[in-house]
Every structure is written in C-alpha cells, then in structure tokens.
Nucleic acid binder design. Sequence first.
DNA 1: ATATGAAAGTTAAACGTTTTCCTAACTCTG
DNA 2: CAGAGTTAGGAAAACGTTTAACTTTCATAT
Lengths: 344, 344
Amino acid sequence: MATIREISEKANVSIATVSKVLNGKGSVNEKTRQTVLQVARQLNYRPNLNARNLKSGQSRTIGIITEDLTVFNAPEIVDGIAAACDEAGYHYILGNLRFYKRYGNGQKDLKESNALVHAAVNGMLSKQVDGIIYIGCHSHIVVSLSEHTEPKFVCAYCISKDENIPSVIYNDEKAAYDLTEILLNYGDRRIGMITGPLDSSHTANRTRGHQRALFDHGVPYDPCLTFVGDWERDSGYALAEKLIAAGVTAIFAHNDLMAVGVLDYCNEKRINVGRDLRLIGFDDREVASVCRPRLSTAAPPLFEIGQAAAREMLSILAGNKASEQNIMLDCSIIERESTLGSKP
Amino acid sequence: MATIREISEKANVSIATVSKVLNGKGSVNEKTRQTVLQVARQLNYRPNLNARNLKSGQSRTIGIITEDLTVFNAPEIVDGIAAACDEAGYHYILGNLRFYKRYGNGQKDLKESNALVHAAVNGMLSKQVDGIIYIGCHSHIVVSLSEHTEPKFVCAYCISKDENIPSVIYNDEKAAYDLTEILLNYGDRRIGMITGPLDSSHTANRTRGHQRALFDHGVPYDPCLTFVGDWERDSGYALAEKLIAAGVTAIFAHNDLMAVGVLDYCNEKRINVGRDLRLIGFDDREVASVCRPRLSTAAPPLFEIGQAAAREMLSILAGNKASEQNIMLDCSIIERESTLGSKP
DNA sequence: ATATGAAAGTTAAACGTTTTCCTAACTCTG
DNA sequence: CAGAGTTAGGAAAACGTTTAACTTTCATAT
C-alpha cells in the first residue's frame, strides 16, 4: 500500500505538503497540488485510517449494536443508520450479539448476556467509536450500558431505562388510534380487540390509543370486547370465535400474526373479511400482504428510526444537547382489503 | 481513555513491560504481571486498536459488502459471517451499498453502481481489512471488484465471474432433485413444473435437478408439463390452471411465491392441496410457513453460506490456497402439509 | 529602501502501540 | 569459580498520519 511518504518522494515535496493537499488544508501552489494529486492517483493511494484516526484522535465512526441481526426488524434500522452515516460522511461498524441464536427467546442467563453486551461495547471503544447506537428491545440490558459513561449512547427501537440515553421509538398509541379510527369511520361500533400480553408496553400503548379513539368518537369502550392474546396466530384463531360470538363487526388485533389467526377462523367459517367483518393488524410483517384478504395494518417506520437515531447521535457528537424527550416517529397506516373489501 | 503509558507509570514499569503483560508475550515476573493487570483493570484500560493495527500492520478484520441489507437474505448471511469471525477472534465491518433502495430493481445506471462498489472497497481498504466478502447476486459488479487485486475476495450467494475469486453458493440442482424425489416417492408421475425466467441460472439448475430425478426414477420428462413463470405470485396462479387442466397430480414451483399463486388457484377451485394435489415451492420464505396448507420447500443454507464464506476467507488469510471449486452447500428440504396432507 | 504580510513549503513532534535489541541479575553446570 | 543459559525488564525505533511552529520567498504598502 502506497503511503504519504512515497508520494512525497515521487512528487519531490515534503510529506506535510502531501498531507495538506490530501486534506485540502493550508495553502499550496496549484501546480504542486496537481502533481501531488496525480502521483497519489498513480500510486493508487488510500489513506490509512488507523494512522489518521490515531493521530487525529477521532474516528468519525459510530458503533451499532444489534441484539440479533436476524430477528426483529434490525436490518431495516441498520439500513437507516447506514444511510444517515453515509450522508454525513461518518463510518459505522456493526456488532451483532446473536442473542436469540445463542439463548433462544428465553434469555436464560442474564449474567452472560450482560457480559456479551459489555464485551461488544468494549470492543467498539477499542476501535475508538464516537458513539454507540443500541438496537433491541431489552431495556434491562441497555441499562447495563450506561455504566460505561465515556461514549455517547442512543437507543433505537427501545426505551432506555437510563434517563440520559435518548431513545428513538415509534408511536404505538397514535397508530392504534388511527387504525381504530378507520373502523369508526366505516361505522363500526362494536369493535373487538385482541391485545398482546399484559406485561408488554406495546399492549398498553395500543390499548390506550384504541380507547382514546373510541372516546373521541363518542363510542363507549366495552371491556367485554377485549381479549388478551399472546402474539401468536393460534390465540387470534381462538379469540376470534369469542369476539364474533359477541357480535363484533370489526377486530383490531395487536399484531399481524394474531390477525391472521382471526383470518383463519373466518375463512373456515366462511365469514367474508373486508365485507362482513373488518380486520386490522399491526406491524406490517410480510404475512400482512401475503394473506388473503390482505391485512390493513400499521408499519413501524424502521428505516426512519435508524435514520433518526443516527442523526440524534451525530447531533450529540457535534456538541448539541441530547433531546429532552424520546424521539417518537409515526407508523404508516396501510389500508388493504381486510378493511376495504375485495380488490377493486 | 487510559493508555499503556499511564499504566506503566502507575505500576512503575516500562511501557514495554506493560505491553508484554497485556499480550502475554515475553517473560515477566508473576508479581509485576499481577500489578500491571490490576492497574490496567483499575484504569479501565482498553487497547487502542488504531495504534495496535497501525504498528502491527494487520487488523484481523474482514470487510463485508452487501448489495442491500434489507433485501435478499443478506442478514442471515451476515450473521453467519459474524459468527465465524467471532469464533476466530476476527473483526468484521459492514458496508451496505443500499442498491435496491437507491435504484430499485432496475439498476438503471451500471456506471454509478460500479462507482458505489469501488468506493466501498476503497473505504474498506483504508480501514486495512485483510479481505472482503461480497454478498449479492450481480456478478457483473463482482467482476469489477477483481480489478483491485490487493485484498482477498470471497463471494457469498453468487458466483463470481472471476476465476480467482472463490464463491460459496447453495446447491440448487440437488435441492430440486430431492424435492422432485419426494413427489416421485408419493407415486406422482405427472408432475408439473413452474420455472423461473429462462435467463436465471436458478431456473436452469432447478430444472436440471428436476429432470435428473425423473430420469433416475424412470419417469419420462414431459415438456408439456413445464411452464415458464416470472417468480411472481400471479404467474403461479395463471399457470396452475393450465397444469391442472393437463392433469398433473403434483406441481413443483421454482419459488414459494409462485407456489402460493398455485395455492390461491386451488383454494378458489376447492382443490385440496396436500391430498388431491401435491405442491412444492423453493426458498422457504416466511410465506411458506404462513400460507395454508403450509408449503413443502427447500431452504437455502444462508447462515451456513456466510459461515463457510468467512471460513474460506480466514483459511486464505492464514496462507492456505483458495478452494479450487466453488463451495456448494446443500439446502434443507422441509416437508409440510402441501405434500403431507393436512396436519396430523 | 524598509517593513509587513501572505503564500508556499518544511521540520519535527506526536498519537498509542509493538517489537527488536540490549542489559543486568540470577541460576546452573562441571 | 568461570562460563553458559535463563529470566526480568528497559530503551528506542517504528507504523502512517496530522499539525503546530517555523522558514523562505515574494509582492505590496509606506
């Protein structure tokens, strides 16, 4: 690999001059500038970032830690971060904890997972990152991050328990509100809801949004039309029966998978979803546009979450204060045949 | 950030000694070793990799370039690479070209995309990576990589046009053979096939595997039972009609999406897939386990491809010769209700 | 003619490591 | 006790940059 010194020799100038040309700093004669540039190109010169970063003491790099690149919507978020970094001339490095592959969903060993996060953070600090963005949903892990006070942290897709770490999340409640409003605008008054487990903050937020929409439209909330699911398809199937028996004209399921379960039930019972029953899910996973009728749902702004997290980080690194509030982005509301009726 | 020098001062030894302790090289008295270690821990010391890599001239890092992290099965492959790297104590950095987001599937501007790849490669070389793994499916781009001869290259998920670049791919033909054999073992003799477009190597390979299986089982191949699709659901739907009219008892679609199209047709016509007609797809995308009946299909070994690519790279970096042949991994054959009949 | 200052370059130190070579002290061996 | 070998540790150079401080040159203003 060609170095700055080789260029300086070939071009008959000092290495300082070469450095100036390459960085566009200081004043150098246009002719020498051209010569240097030409020699550099000819030698196929590429700066050694290790040397540059070492000397200048800054890497213009942010670290991204994902709990698991292959679950959740991590790739989209990483993509958003990457886009924002590219735009700003920053670099990024990825650390993939491979959490779920390692432990399954059970997270059997908290100690071990903490160690994993610590190791990843330390590794990134060794690489002199300016800040770290954490993508995941386990705030108990995130908390352990804050012990390391040196670099800047930002959480994406989760709320950090630590007040000092800004978080970028999506607005569950508003999306649930908007989805419910779709149903209300169609005239539905008896709307069933299948929630996620009660210990999930998503469940709480989505329920709140739903109730608020009902309230704003003067429709009383009937607790008998709400059942608690477990995010899985089967629970959607099972609860669909109860809700339909209760005479609902629409169902809002807290995720697409449970909505598909409802769909299964309706298909079996020859209930025409979209006409006789309106159905709404949440998440916009692939299944939502693959099932028939396709599901109306809310798509979390994953790319934008990544982008916003990166921008927040860059802003902090530029010396600005971190946002006081968590940054909350809106979901896209996607209406499909499950509320529209069959394809036009 | 604490440095080696600070440790040396606190511990009253030279920096050389500290370095030796930290790297476990040279001989140092057990007592001083402990002191140094303790001071290091106390100062929360983390080695500066920029300095280390600069001095030692090697980074133990490989670069990963993905055409687009959010399409294809890139995340799984990256995951496999990451796992192999972790295992070997190597680092990796990710470069996401965001190809499809930028250009859509059309790749309107080859010049520009080449520039993109070059920039990514140059960036990685600046970071002193020892080698680069390219994940994607556009060999024309990969070819442009080989102009850069300095680092080692490995292709994952695609075959490089350049003979010198080893590639890790999955065995399309064998998977198609095995899938067809499932049908043959059920006694199917009139098997319809819906292929991908004719200019795809997948189409050629899968067709070959299919024909070979028929041949080995003494079943003549009937060209009238093969139709060319376009990977999309609608083509599966349309061609299902023709094949069923032709009296097939089973259909092998070259991907899951077209198979789901077949399923749509069958559901509409009340043909019981799994009992009256056996159906097989390819790819094991999410849809395959979401549709009803669930699809029998072949799952490309994505994680393993990443892992193998990384291992090949590490082997090359260790001084071994690159594999003569492309490395070909088998798909997992997954049998579900679309060939098994309804759920037990 | 002299002073001022900008322009164009250079010198050399520094960033935090690793590593080669060196020295001193000790322990064997015969 | 001399020589050899081992152990423990240190001094200093080097990796490829950036950058502060400096020098030289030359145009311009007084």
